[in-house]
Amino acid sequence: MADTILAVTGLTVSFDGFKAVDDLNLSIDKDELRVVIGPNGAGKTTLLDMICGKTKPSAGRIEFKNADLTKLSEYEITRAGVGRKFQTPSVYDDLTVLENLEISYPKHRGVFGSLFFRRTREIGDKIRAVAQDIYLQDELETKAGILSHGQKQWLEIGMLLMQDPELMLLDEPVAGMSARERDLTADLLARISKGRSIVLIEHDMEFVRKIAHRVTVLHQGKVLSEGSMDQVQKDARVIEVYLGM
């Protein structure tokens, strides 16, 4: 298929005999916003960990634009165009918002490139544009460590935007956010999903309904069901393991 950006086949990983992800198959189209849901321990985060290289699978392939990601290290996967946002916001507390964004700019990533790096106008403009997108345009000089939880979540999304990845992996981006922040984040996701693919893990069903193109339900490391939110919610197996609880 020409418009598939990510193809996961036969993906398996076990931790001490426990199969967190078991022979999983998944395919993501270009420009798609896919939400992955499932009960705790279904293997959602582990799946993202394997795509971005944090965890090495025991078996299976992860094909991203004709490259097998299972053979690359984390930074090579990032450079190939995959961006990852973690469940607990991971920003650099001792650096300012501006510096956090600047570090994520996807050029000058070598030792000497970064030693002689100069912030050009183009980069400055991009930083300001991203800061505007993530509602932090007035916090550029603030140390990331003193931002609120929700702002840290946005900042980490902003760091991904600086990388301009073709595939974004977002792990619970609205966790711990107020209702207003959730709405702003839904807007943000709608804006940034144009021209790129997003795989997102979420528990908040209202939020999922608002943003998802398609939904994949994981259960015990396998795909239980896949389709639109309505289809998935009508699926008897899904109701049994998850929604019906």
């Binding site: 290290s73 930074y75 990032t78 450079r79 990852r84 650099y92 001792d94 570090i103 994520s104 996807p106």
Partner: peptide, 15 residues
Amino acid sequence: IAIRDREDRVRFSGY
């Protein structure tokens, strides 16, 4: 500084 504070994250910024 970023590596000192959060080395794992820096790898995912492509370094």
